[in-house]
Nucleic acid binder design. Structure first.
Lengths: 106, 106
DNA sequence: TTGACATATCGTCATCTTACGATATATTGA
DNA sequence: TCAATATATCGTAAGATGACGATATGTCAA
C-alpha cells in the first residue's frame, strides 16, 4: 500500500565516528539525576552537596555522576575552600536540554 | 574566588516523573545504530533489511533495535508483502537529532 | 504444497551500569 | 595538632544491555 514519502537518498550526515560520540554523549545524559544536574548547572553554579540534595541522592553518588559528566566534557569544576563548584562547559547541552524540556514539560 | 553567575533559584522544569521518561527516551536513542536508523527514517520510509544494511548489522539485530524504539513510541511499522516498513511517529525526534547533528557534524 | 525470502523472537552470555558502604583526601577552624 | 566538613574514590553486587545463533512466523511465487 505504497509510498507516502519519497526517499531523498540516504542521509549523509554523521560518520561512524561521530555516531559513536553522539551515542556516548546521549548515554551520559540518559539518567534522571544527570539530566537534573545539567538543568541546574545551566542556571548557575552549584556544589556537589547542593546538587545531591536537590536530586535526593547521597553525596558520593552525586560525585560519581559529576565525574562521569566531567570526563566527557560536559562540566568543569573548581574548588572554593572545602566545596567544589561545577559548571557547564559544553555549550550544546543547552540545546539538547531545551529539546527535552519542550517534549516532556507535561 | 567567587561567583561568576548568579543563581536564579533552582530551575523548576521537569518533575521526577518526566525526568524518568526523558532519561528513558535518551537511553533508547543512545546507540550508534539507533541514531542512524532515526536519521534514515526522518528522511523516508525504509525496511528492516535496508536499515540493517546501512548500519552494517545483521537483520535480526536491526529488528531488535527497531522493536525497542517502536515500544517507546518512536516508530510505527506497516507490512507490505514480506517487507516491513518503519517510519517515525514521534515528532520531537527531529529536534533532538538536529541538536545532535549540529554538535557532531565534523 | 514447497521453498525461498523478510522479519521477529528466544535463550544465552559477556559486558556495562548503578548504587551502596567503606575508606581516602582536602580544607578549615579550634 | 585534631576534629569536623566536603568531596572523591574504591570494591562489590544486582540489574540492565547488546550481540549472537537458532528457531519461529509470515508472505510470496512456482
Amino acid at each position: 500500500m505504497a509510498r507516502a514519502v519519497r526517499k531523498s537518498r540516504k542521509p549523509v550526515e554523521l560518520g561512524a565516528e561521530s555516531l559513536g560520540q553522539a551515542a556516548e554523549c546521549l548515554r551520559v545524559l540518559a539518567h534522571p539525576a544527570r539530566i537534573r544536574m545539567v538543568q541546574m548547572l545551566l542556571s548557575g553554579r552549584y556544589t556537589v552537596g547542593e546538587l545531591a540534595e536537590d536530586c535526593g541522592i547521597p553525596d558520593n553518588v552525586a560525585s560519581e555522576h559529576l565525574r562521569l559528566m566531567q570526563r566527557c566534557g560536559f562540566f568543569t569544576s573548581e574548588r572554593d575552600g572545602r566545596k567544589v563548584y561545577y559548571q557547564v562547559a559544553e555549550p550544546h547541552l543547552a540545546d539538547i536540554i531545551n529539546c527535552i524540556e519542550s517534549r516532556f514539560s507535561k
